[in-house]
Design a protein around this nucleic acid. Structure first.
Length: 215
DNA sequence: CCATTAAGATACT
DNA sequence: AGTATCTTAATGG
């Protein structure tokens, strides 16, 4: 079992300066989530920002009819910039976060953020980069929604999921996919059947396996 | 066995 | 593409 500091040092030495890592350990709270556990829900208070040490987390929005839409995944070394801006205004969360795999997350109190921005150049850069990449992912999500057909969206969904889980075997139901993409089960089934015919995937109950035809 | 639920099929919008 | 409805198949008691 590693201490928090050892863990941060070995994984993020290249990213943060020594003193910052010490500060992160001192003030951050490390929490572990099992797969599929809700980490944050819409409307909950934000007084800390999450820094993902291990695992992957999916971030979704929800409309008033409780329909979901997958926005992006957070992986090791990522933070959620949506939370970031909300934090300084003491706002409530507009997104939902669910552990995709077992995840370790370090929660850093929002009160420290501005202080660290001034004190640590590495933190400043990290936050700015994070903002940038999160924004780009959001633009991609919007783009796919507005301009891509469902078939392409589904394909990207499968590839993304495979990537963050580090496996070609996805344990997921057609219904779950449908709700992540805000579509319906029959439609997803139809498209997956088509993928199967083209030998891009193999299917079993509760399981989709990507073949090596996919890059 | 049977109950539950995922996935397939068909027809209609 | 999406909804409604029915059928079939897998799973776990």
């Amino acid at each position: 079992m590693h201490t928090c500091k050892e863990k941060l040092e070995q994984q993020f030495k290249y990213l943060f300066e020594e003193k910052l890592i010490e500060d992160m350990c001192r003030h951050g709270k490390l929490r572990v989530f099992d797969a599929n556990v809700t980490i944050m829900d819409i409307g909950s208070d934000l007084n800390a920002i999450p820094f993902v040490i291990d695992g992957s987390i999916k971030v979704l929005t929800e409309n008033d009819q409780s329909d979901d839409l997958l926005l992006y995944y957070l992986e090791s070394g990522d933070t959620c910039s949506v939370t970031l801006s909300c934090c300084s205004h003491n706002a409530k969360s507009k997104v939902k976060a669910i552990a995709e795999t077992r995840s370790e997350v370090l929660f850093i109190p929002g009160s420290l953020l501005s202080e660290w921005m001034v004190r640590y150049a590495s933190w400043r850069n990290y936050i700015l980069d994070s903002y940038n990449s999160r924004l780009n992912e959001m633009i991609e999500a919007i783009d796919s929604l507005a301009f891509q057909n469902l078939e392409e969206r589904l394909m990207n969904y499968l590839k993304d999921k495979s990537w963050v889980n580090k496996t070609r075997i996805l344990d997921v139901t057609h219904q779950q996919i449908a709700s992540d993409l805000n579509s319906s089960r029959v439609v997803i089934s139809r498209l997956l059947k088509k993928f199967e015919k083209n030998k891009m995937i193999l299917q079993q109950r509760n399981r989709v396996e990507l073949t090596d035809k996919l890059s």
